[in-house]
Structures are given as C-alpha cells and as structure tokens.
C-alpha cells in the first residue's frame, strides 16, 4: 500500500491529484499522499485540463466554481 487507507472515500487519480473525503468533507491529495488542497469542500470532482468543479458552503458563504491545482478558485460561478 503506497498511501495508507485513511479516507472515507477516494476518487481515482486524474492529472496527478485524487479527491479524498473524510467526515463528509473533500480535498485533494498528490501521489505521495500529501494533502495539497485542504479537506473542507462539500463537493469536488476530478481535475480535467487543470481545473476541477467544487462547491463549498458554510452559513453565510457559498462558493461554487472551478479551482486550479493550488486550490484557488479561478472561475467563480456563485458570484
């Protein structure tokens, strides 16, 4: 096992990153298992062409759009 079982759910690797979930929150790891985008998103899909669709909401703040591999939201669809 190269990355120990520690997640509730994982997606397959795509463009070097995989989405992982712990306690209903989602983030991304790289191939050595390091968390590169913090596990705090509500929805997250695989990276394609450098971008991934994510959604994140807390009480007053709703964010929806595309993040780059640094976790920056480069296209916001939620205003």
């Amino acid at each position: 096992m190269v990355i120990q079982p520690q997640f509730d759910y994982v997606s397959s690797f795509s463009e070097g990153l995989a989405a992982v979930a712990i306690d209903k929150k989602i983030g991304y790891i790289n191939k050595v298992g390091k968390i590169v985008i913090p596990i705090q998103l509500d929805r997250a899909k695989d990276f394609f062409e450098g971008l991934a669709v994510v959604k994140n909401s807390d009480k007053n703040n709703f964010r929806f759009g595309f993040i780059n591999k640094k976790g920056e939201m480069v296209i916001s669809l939620s205003r």
């Binding site: 979930a21 929805r43 709703f62």
Partner: peptide
C-alpha cells in the same frame, strides 16, 4: 459506498446548488 458515508459520489453531477439561490 459513497452515499453511505453521506457524501455524494464525487463524479456525480453537482446537484443544483442551494435552490434558494
């Protein structure tokens, strides 16, 4: 399996964001 953890499958369509929006 993903549903069981309360997480929507990662690759499923993002469900309509908060309807009230």
């Amino acid at each position: 399996a993903a549903s069981a953890t309360g997480i929507k499958p990662l690759y499923q369509s993002l469900i309509a964001a908060t309807p009230s929006l």
